[in-house]
Design a protein around this nucleic acid. Structure first.
Length: 800
RNA sequence: GCUCGUAUGGCGAAAUUGGUAGACGCGAUAGACUCAAAAUCUAUUUUCCUUUAAAGAAGUCUCGGUUCAAGUCCGAGUACGAGCACCA
């Protein structure tokens, strides 16, 4: 068969018939299947895309045949750096490059026969779409969820641009290789940390895979501890520290502040070595986040001479240090150091000769010559009212004490920070605010949305790191919507994550120009039932999307707090050498080439067969040929079809229907293919098969190889397309043979196998098993202690 | 360092969730068809002993445990991979 021609024929027929268009008014039960929309890069489609699209396509096709109203949409996440880079280089508007890339991607996806509902397609860069992204940002702003704050960003002094953490990995600029420094800039922020607890709780309303839930939990990073107040001797100042181990307070011999801690300025007249402190502050500032965390293993710090803290539990003096191993961004930016029981504090204390007091031990005795921090839980010592208590008891008692004396309280901290929502880039959604000298920040009125990106040809950032938009004075200068006076537009744009944080809502009602989606559509489609994407997006993207949706829910705009029910992730397709596919390694497989040579169905079938869907898999063209052979075999079987009715073998057919139905819904695509191979192999051994036999195979295979199965269905004279037929049902009672073969073990070792009737009486099975010659041999001269019969499974005879 | 995965033939992998380990596919070997090749079909293919078969022994990263029975459960460890990373 000429596969390419056949595939085109069916793709055209499906598209023209609108078979995959989901309806917003249907009596059928809805089912929303979503696969992450791609960034349409210039590289074209990757065979990895084919894997996840095919997998969900197969599921969607089965669900439709099972009678669901399936929403399976596709679109484009097209804002972001690569398109902007391309534009800078070639002096064309990024939207042009995006348009071309989308065309390529779409053509490639269509050549695979994926059953996306193209009538709902959009790109995050469409003004009709980003109008609503901007509108939603204004909702954040109106509800006090967006604010401006000074933040350190990764800054390349050579390129004069701000870099993401990814683009500055290793502490050098990805583009020019120069050293990245920290630069303070005013940035728009979203109060995501306010939602930390709610994002944690909400996980209970989802059915994400455990590892994905864990990823979210770790990212949110909840920690339960206490804030403890240390007075600074002979001043009115206090220092509040955050600790998860307030029970070790008697062992706190010094404190460490983040170098930029504000108390330092307040105490500067008291600090005798202020020069040294200033020097250290500068040194810390110049270090990038990378160096602070990875390169410099050895702890450094400077003691604040002339100021002393007071340990609130025993009134003893504690030294105050600054050190860059303490971060301003977490807790209170200050810690109490307990060198005996914390590795980092121990190292610091050793280096600077600070006293070490042990307050926990295994046996209630002090350890001589502690050579490293004792971090196991034990019994408290040297701790007055805590002596003899274990960790939990001691923490509770200490919290009680701190509370009674107004010295501290229980405190929950989260690693999750507010979302830095500004980018100094051209190719993103403009933040729809203007700044007026008189009125301050003023939202652009809804009627003036979207704030469009201007049509220019220069996209280089400015020398001081402002967005390229800042240079376009026509665009920047505007009037204040409130007072009508002179005003300037915000020139920062939104991060790439913005558009993808709510796109799943837009699919429900993509052409609505009155609102981002009608309440009816939002209610009808509800949650995404099944969301698939890459492992790399299971923390941040998913968290942003959940946060965004929870916020919209809280202000009454969407019906569900959680947007997604089930989230799964697929493994990568690696090159045949087990490495990530890349041009430089020469191991890239272009799906177009495979489609041209072997057909889309073969590629689809192979990628489903390649292995465990959630794990990485290496490409093998040899194995791909095996799938081609299988499809050829299915084709040849059509010549065996006789004019009889019914199934040649009820059991194998029912068994296969059961397995394929279950496996398709449980991401076990590889065994879907193998069980169909077994069925085809069985048919091949038959003299002839019935049309019913053949139709079952075609229907079950259709979700994975839709083109060839439709063609064969037509060739044997069906007037209806497979995709219009109901999904095959199975009869549980017919999934097991009447006669089965089970193993017989003696002392757990297999000695024989016997044929018995299904559900045969245990005593009878015992009898048959005992009669086996080889079983007898192993029973000879032994005493039978007991015999275990597991129905339809195994017999085990225990002897002595 | 912490958290989470993973480990099964020459290779990709299955295993009804504690019940005959290696289904299915690739590769390989032998044969059929063919002038020949391709395609297709048939047989064999975990290892060891054995001419073969029957029969046997070993075998799912390592060591130990629970059980009539362990790839599957428990404990300790090794290797590889992923994420987070001085989070107090």
């Amino acid at each position: 068969m000429e596969m390419n021609k056949i595939e085109k024929k069916w793709q055209k027929r499906w598209e023209e018939g609108g078979y995959f268009h989901a309806s917003n008014n249907s009596d059928k039960e809805k089912y929303y299947i979503l696969v992450e929309f791609p960034y349409p890069s210039g590289q074209g489609l990757h065979v990895g895309h084919v894997r996840s699209y095919t997998a969900l396509d197969a599921y969607a096709r089965m669900k439709r045949m099972q009678g669901y109203n399936v929403l399976f949409p596709m679109g484009w996440d097209a804002f972001g750096a690569p398109a902007e880079q391309y534009a800078i280089k070639n002096h064309i508007h990024p939207s042009k490059a995006v348009e071309e890339n989308i065309k390529t991607f779409k053509g490639q996806i269509q050549s695979l026969g994926i059953s996306f509902d193209w009538s709902r397609e959009f790109s995050t860069t469409d003004p009709e779409y980003y109008k609503w992204t901007q509108w939603q940002f204004l909702k954040f702003y109106e509800h006090g969820m967006a604010y401006k704050a000074k933040k350190d960003i990764n800054w390349c002094p050579n390129c004069k641009i701000g870099l993401s953490n990814e683009d500055s990995s290793g502490g050098v600029c990805e583009r020019c290789g120069s050293k990245v420094v920290q630069k303070e800039k005013e940035q728009w922020m979203l109060r995501m940390s306010d939602y930390a607890e709610s994002l944690l709780d909400g996980l209970n309303d989802t059915h994400f895979a455990d590892k994905i839930k864990l990823g979210q939990i770790n990212w949110i990073g909840k920690s339960i501890g206490a804030e403890v107040l240390f007075k600074v001797k002979d001043t009115e100042e206090d220092i509040v520290v955050y600790t998860t181990r307030c029970d070790t307070l008697f062992g706190a011999t010094f404190m460490v502040l983040a170098p930029e801690h504000p108390i330092i300025e307040k105490l500067k007249d008291k600090i005798q070595n202020m020069d040294e402190v200033r020097k250290y502050q500068t040194y810390a500032k110049e270090k990038t986040t990378f160096e602070r965390t990875e390169l410099v293993k050895e702890k450094t710090g400077v003691k604040l001479e002339g100021v002393v803290g007071i340990n609130p539990v025993n009134g003893k003096d504690v030294e105050i240090w600054i050190g860059d191993y303490v971060m301003m961004g977490y807790g209170t930016g200050a810690i109490m150091a307990v060198p005996a029981h914390d590795d980092r504090d121990f190292e610091f204390a050793k280096k600077y000769n600070i006293p070490i007091i042990q307050v926990i031990s295994k046996d209630g005795k002090e350890t001589l010559n502690l050579d490293k921090a004792y971090t196991e839980d034990g019994i408290h010592i040297n701790s007055e009212f805590l002596d003899g208590l274990n960790k939990e008891e001691a923490i509770n008692k200490m919290l009680e004490f701190l509370g009674e004396n107004n010295l501290g309280k229980k405190k929950v901290n989260y690693r999750l920070q507010d979302w830095v929502f500004s980018r100094q880039r051209f190719w993103g959604e403009p933040i729809p605010l203007v700044h007026c000298d008189k009125c301050g920040w003023v939202p652009v009125p809804e009627s003036e949305l979207p704030v469009l990106l201007p049509d220019v040809t220069e996209y280089e950032p400015t020398d001081d790191g402002e967005s390229p938009l800042a240079k376009i004075s026509d665009w920047v200068n505007t009037t204040c919507p409130k007072c009508g006076g002179k005003a300037r537009r915000e020139t920062d744009t939104m991060p790439n994550w913005a558009g993808s944080s709510w796109y799943f809502l837009r699919y429900m009602d993509p052409h609505n120009d009155k609102c981002f989606a009608s309440p009816e559509a939002l209610k009808y489609w509800g949650k995404v039932d099944w969301y698939n994407g890459g492992m790399e997006h299971t923390t941040r993207h998913l968290l942003y999307a959940r946060f965004w949706n929870q916020f919209l829910h809280n202000i009454g705009l969407v019906p569900n707090s959680e947007p997604i029910d089930i989230r799964v992730s697929h493994g990568m397709i690696l090159g045949s050498n087990n490495e990530k596919m890349s041009k430089s390694k020469g191991n890239v497989i272009n799906p177009d080439d495979i489609v041209n040579e072997y057909g889309a169905d073969t590629l689809r079938c192979y990628e489903m067969f390649i292995g465990d869907y959630e794990k990485d898999a290496s490409w093998s063209t040899e194995s791909l040929r095996g799938c081609k052979r299988f499809l050829d075999k299915v084709e040849r079987l059509k010549d065996k079809v006789n004019n009889k009715d019914g199934y040649t073998d009820e059991v194998i057919v029912n068994k296969t229907i059961k397995k394929v139905t279950y496996d398709l819904a449980n991401m076990k695509y590889n065994t879907v293919v193998s069980s169909l191979m077994i069925l085809a192999g069985f048919y091949e051994k038959c003299e002839s098969i019935t049309k019913d036999d053949y139709m079952v195979l075609l229907k079950l295979l259709n979700p994975i190889a839709p083109h060839i199965t439709e063609e064969l269905n037509e060739m044997i004279g069906s007037s209806q397309m497979i995709l219009e037929m109901p999904w095959p049902e199975y009869d549980e009672a017919k999934t097991i043979d009447d006669e089965i073969e089970i193993g017989v073990q003696v002392n757990g070792k297999l000695r024989s196998s016997i044929k018995i009737k299904k559900d045969e009486d245990d005593e009878k099975v015992k009898e048959i098993a005992m009669a086996e010659e080889n079983v007898q041999k192993h029973l000879e001269g032994k005493e039978i202690i007991k015999t275990i019969v597991i129905k339809n499974r195994i017999v085990n005879i225990v002897v002595k």
